[in-house]
Nucleic acid binder design. Structure first.
Length: 496
RNA sequence: GGCCCCUUCGUCUAAUGGUUAGGACACCGCUCUUUCAAGGCGGCGAUACGGGUUCGAGUCCCGUAGGGGUCACCA
């Protein structure tokens, strides 16, 4: 039988990193086995629905190249793939459970349930639905139940969990697990609004959609016994289960918004590459060798093995993500990067720059930043003349000697031809020697005048990218405008 | 608190019961050098604890401790 897996998010917000990892492992498993990857939207709680979240999930999966084979907008043989469009199916199966005696009807109001929990807590016992004292099919009797139903009194359908015995199941990641039945609650399967809860809808759909492997987060492990009971009540063969270790905050709690952003979209906006995000997230909880860090999606597909997935949760370390992203930044095609950079330039209204120019900028600076858009701030002087000059740097590298050399330096630069960094370098070296001054002094002065900053790419390379005209203009502008201003500032600081 | 899961450097991880416990990020140093990076080289740094099984345990078993998840008409 061919592999069929699903990613089943609920549309309660944006796709987050944890969801992406779950989707990724499902995707990798499906592709590795030549199986089918299904997207199913679990929107059975209409109160938690967030507008636009389905679109966001689909868009982000697509951005990461995790395209699904069946699902919303794509169709497939077992649709619809949105649970709110399948409510009649769940009602039908809930009735089947009722007929089989595996479930029962209950009329308790939320207030009554709350009082029950309070009583239990005061008595020091674990809160759990008590079907021998509450208002349900068993305590009310068949006749009264039918009467209330006929009257239209709201009701729910609950799973009738055995009072004794042990529920056992097997998990690909965690092995054999068993839970005493007495610790399992009589889960509500069908809510009073006629919608199913997760547990019913999930089991029914996984069966109807012929899912062979359920790969989901560890937070679902505690509800496994309920799901096992449901499969058994229906007489269905269970799929195989794999509960993935959680993604954690630096404090080891479940990954959440509190410690920085977790929405995939935020990483996209910040300028992370999808390849980097996928590469990083794939290695959180699974590793093919332990010796390599960089994998393409294709390589991940080839190597993926569910049995090698770890059991312990993994902290989401943004530092390593940045490093991986930086790696991709240094290895991607500069032409492609230039196109992407142009987008950022336009978004920020930095002016018009040709792709040729931006490509040079990318090559010049990509080894010095982790994210592509950081080039815009790190190398701001490549997009407009510097308006701010680091005072400390100025104080350190500017001197009377240097200032006296500026006219000669300008004359030298004017005659340099061709304007290429190797030529510029040779000429400047000769100049420094001739003037009996250290080359470093000249370079630092140029760096200050041309960029205003103490750090950046190689100076002559930067000059080449700026062009001769711009280089000369900036030097002149520095001497006539910025230098007096800087002097004045220094004087003010000194007098304070 | 009940139930369930988990535990190798700070972090992500590797290790058919036999390795000086390996790699990567971060950090530190050296190197390169016109600054800052990148690269290269090196360093720091872990089997939670206690028992047991075994010639031999990170690996198997038991206990303890710690961490996490979950206990809704939410998924």
């Amino acid at each position: 039988m061919s592999v069929r897996v699903r990613f089943a998010p609920s549309p309660t917000g944006y796709l987050h990193i944890g969801g992406l990892r779950t989707a990724l492992y499902n995707f990798l498993f499906a592709r590795h086995h030549g199986g089918t990857f299904v997207l199913r939207i679990e929107d059975t709680d209409k109160t938690r629905y967030v507008e636009g979240s389905v679109e966001n999930i689909i868009e982000m999966l697509h951005w990461c190249r995790l395209d699904y084979d069946e699902g919303p907008g794509k169709g497939g043989p077992y649709g619809p793939y949105v649970q709110s469009e399948r409510t009649e199916i769940y009602r039908q199966y809930a009735r089947e459970l009722l007929d089989k005696g595996a479930a029962y009807i209950a009329f308790d109001t939320p207030e009554e349930l709350e009082r029950m929990r309070q009583r239990q807590q005061q008595a020091g016992i674990v809160p759990k639905y008590d079907r021998t004292t509450m208002r349900n099919q068993f305590t009310l009797g068949e006749e009264e139940t039918q009467r209330l139903l006929a009257e239209g009194v709201p009701y729910v359908i609950r799973l009738k969990v055995p009072l004794t015995g042990v529920i056992k199941f097997s998990d690909i990641v965690r092995g054999e697990i068993s839970v005493p039945a007495r610790d399992v609650d009589d889960q509500i399967l069908l809510k009073s609004d006629g919608f199913p809860t997760y547990h019913l809808a999930n089991v029914v759909d996984d069966h109807l959609m012929h899912i062979t492997h359920v790969i989901r987060g560890e937070e679902w492990l505690p509800s496994m016994p309920k799901h096992v009971l449901l499969y058994e009540a229906f007489g269905w063969e269970k799929p195989q289960f794999a509960h993935l270790p959680l993604l954690l905050n630096p404090d080891r709690s479940k990954l959440s918004k509190r410690h920085g952003h977790v929405a995939v979209e935020d990483f996209k906006k910040e300028g992370y590459f999808p390849e980097a995000l996928i590469n990083f997230v794939a290695l959180l909880g699974w590793n093919p060798t332990g010796e390599r860090e960089i994998y393409s999606l294709q390589e991940l597909i080839e190597l993926f093995d569910l049995r090698k997935v770890n059991k312990a949760g993994a902290i989401f370390d943004i530092q390593k993500l940045r490093w991986i992203n930086a790696h991709y930044l240094r290895h991607k095609d500069p032409k492609e990067l230039a196109r992407q950079l142009q987008q950022y330039v336009q978004e920020r209204n930095l002016g018009d720059f040709s792709l040729e120019y931006l490509e040079k900028v990318v090559i010049l600076l990509r080894e010095r930043v982790d994210l592509l858009p950081e080039i815009l701030t790190f190398g701001d002087y490549l997009f407009h003349p510097p308006t701010h000059f680091e005072q400390e740097y100025f104080a350190r590298v500017w001197s009377e000697d240097i200032e006296a050399l500026i006219p000669a330096l300008l004359t030298l630069l004017r005659q340099i031809e061709p304007w290429e960094h190797t030529v510029i370098w040779e000429q400047l070296k000769g100049f420094a020697k001739q003037q009996g001054i250290k080359i470093g002094k000249v370079m630092n002065a140029l760096r200050l005048m041309l960029t205003g900053k103490s750090v950046g790419a190689g100076m002559t390379e930067t000059m080449e990218v700026l062009g001769k005209e711009e280089t000369l203009r900036r030097i002149e502008q520095f001497v006539t405008q910025h230098l007096p201003a800087l002097r004045q500032q220094m004087a003010e600081n000194a007098s304070e």
